[in-house]
Write a protein that binds this DNA or RNA. Structure first.
Lengths: 155, 155
DNA sequence: CACTGTTCAGGAATTTTATTCCTTATCGCT
DNA sequence: AGCGATAAGGAATAAAATTCCTGAACAGTG
């Protein structure tokens, strides 16, 4: 799977905005419509393009609170792990979960409406699974947020 | 700006996958094409739909390393803050930056190719701006990752 | 209770865009 | 030079988005 500089331009554009027509995109990158279209098809088939989505505004939907939850656990067996994975997948407020190397075992990103709804979420979470040490870090301000991968590094 | 049940269904579908035609979408939610189209237009104009993008695969693009960088600073003046904001915006590897309440001041999410490129990034970062205390937490595994906002909470 | 204005759904026509099909150019290899 | 593979481009076709028009439901008013 090789990605040349046309593919890279296509990906850069589409990950920023895929609402342009292929004709506009093709013109922007200096290619005609058909080969450009074929490249997009290929990138989708290969899985380089995972999906196409609409990004919604959390603020407009009254989902203005982001909290990062840091978790330490003393249970490192498979059963607990499975239960944990099932649990986080069941909560739509949990946007992202990473298992970490270092002091904390897991980092969760949670989006809710406000303090009160976060508290309700938190209670439901700890009721469902045992977590030995939980720290909630409230986000005061989104300084930067992007969905774009850094493609510049790719040759 | 009121959002009814139809709008919610549209948003839920589009934030999951916007590659369907409006005809398919309209059928799925029980509306005909034109009113469905008009609702999408309105949601875009109002900013509830921020943008439409392609989500790319980090793995396929050899961007398999995610690191969370926790920063404490002793400089809380406006000049430093501006410089910090400019800096994080200039680094495409920095995907997300939140100012936190609590022990740490900032949490950064960084995506790079591997340890080596992370180290190169880290050196460039600390060369550019003074940070008094920096902890890098490497992600071992993405347990969950979604781009979908929890719309279930909205009435 | 009609009348009127407003809002919103739906169908059909039209325009735009995506997709297919076919032809041509380029390049590496023997 | 000749062959085969790979990729580009143009034109035709299919599909989708967008516009335009009609009609239903409903609240406010004389």
């Amino acid at each position: 799977m090789l990605i040349d500089r046309f593919d890279l331009k296509i990906l850069e554009q589409l990950q920023r905005d895929d609402s342009l027509s292929i004709a506009q995109l093709a013109e922007g990158i200096g290619l005609s419509v058909t080969p450009c279209w074929r490249r997009i098809q290929r990138l989708e088939k290969e899985g380089v393009i995972e999906k196409r989505i609409a990004v919604l505004s959390p603020e407009k939907l009254d989902l203005g609170l982001t909290v990062f939850v840091m978790i330490k656990t003393d249970k490192h067996n498979q059963a607990w792990l499975n239960e944990f994975q099932e649990t986080v997948k069941a909560f739509p407020e949990i946007i992202e979960v990473n298992r970490l190397a270092g002091e904390y075992d897991y980092l969760l990103k949670v989006i809710t409406r406000n303090n009160q709804s976060y508290d309700a979420f938190y209670k439901r979470l700890i009721a469902r699974i045992e977590l030995s040490n939980v720290t909630s870090c409230f986000s005061m301000e989104q300084v930067k947020k992007t969905t774009e991968l850094p493609l510049g590094e790719i040759t």
